[in-house]
Design a binder for these strands. Structure first.
Length: 253
DNA sequence: CGACTTTGACCTGCGC
DNA sequence: GCGCAGGTCAAAGTCG
């Protein structure tokens, strides 16, 4: 499912990729080997990076050999709402229980979302004209996933070429749309922080993969990257990096 | 000159 | 229905 994400994420030098999920956080000392640390009992084990990422349904490239000073640890976020929080105020984490099937948990989430939307549209009884508009405008949501990265650079070199097609100032509140509250009350309880979100498209023809890049307002060191869709081609770095063969780069999901 | 970025306008969905 | 927010478009600007 994730062949498109090969070579993805955090290849930029100096970037510290934050990834992992409960109950594990990972600390990669040297790709392709990662040290997985279990938060609950502090035990750690060195695993083959590629295999491990595969087991956890994380794109292998998140630990790409481009990393020199790897120190991977952190959080996989819910693709739909990277700022969403769980009951404990922390980021919403993906359930990767089905990872043995090498599927992103979000694939299911996304499917549900699309089904719900289809049902809604069906019940709306929209006009043909409107339907046509919907057909052209509302496309089926591609599978998405996002992750948090500690990096000084906003756009991580993931091996693909991207073209920026938009930028937006977004309200980065953890509790948006508070019902029944005056705006100033909301500000007192949940201060609104604005952050800049950039939208990128893969420059390859016929490739409709998009990514969103956003720096966390509450922690400017962190960058949230969201990928949407599947690449229909290999990373452009492949040609350049042929002298450094890597099992990661040779692998297609 | 082509590739890429910037930026305001526009469109759509959602909550109230 | 209205207003807000997110996402996309496209013209203008910038850069190599």
């Amino acid at each position: 499912m994730f062949e498109d994400h090969q070579g993805m994420a955090a290849a930029a030098a100096g970037a510290t990729t934050q990834m992992g999920f409960l109950p594990f956080s990972m600390a990669a000392t040297a790709a392709p080997n990662l040290n997985f640390t279990n938060n609950s009992n502090n035990s750690s084990s060195s695993l083959d990076c590629h295999q491990s990422l595969k087991n956890f349904s994380i794109p292998p490239s998140l630990s790409s050999h481009h990393h020199n000073n790897n120190n991977l640890s952190g959080t996989l976020l819910s693709p739909s709402s990277p700022h969403a929080t769980d009951h404990f105020g922390g980021p919403q984490l993906l359930s990767l229980q089905r990872s043995s099937a090498n599927l992103w948990a979000y694939g299911d989430v996304n499917e549900c979302y699309n089904n719900k939307r289809m049902v809604q549209d069906h019940h709306l009884g929209v006009t043909a004209m409107k339907m046509k508009k919907i057909k052209t405008r509302r496309k089926v949501r591609e599978p998405r996933f996002c992750f948090k990265t500690m990096s000084e650079v906003d756009v991580l070199d993931d091996g693909y070429k991207w073209r920026k097609y938009g930028q937006k100032v977004v309200k980065n509140t953890q509790h948006p749309r508070l019902s029944g509250k005056l705006w100033w009350q909301s500000l007192i309880i949940y201060p609104i922080v604005h952050s800049i979100r950039s939208y990128y498209r893969c420059t390859q023809d016929n490739c409709r993969v998009k990514k969103r890049v956003e720096r966390l307002a509450e922690d400017p060191r962190m960058v949230i990257t969201t990928y949407e869709g599947r690449h229909v081609h290999s990373p452009s770095h492949d040609q350049e990096d042929s002298q450094s063969p890597s099992q990661l780069n040779n692998f297609f999901w």
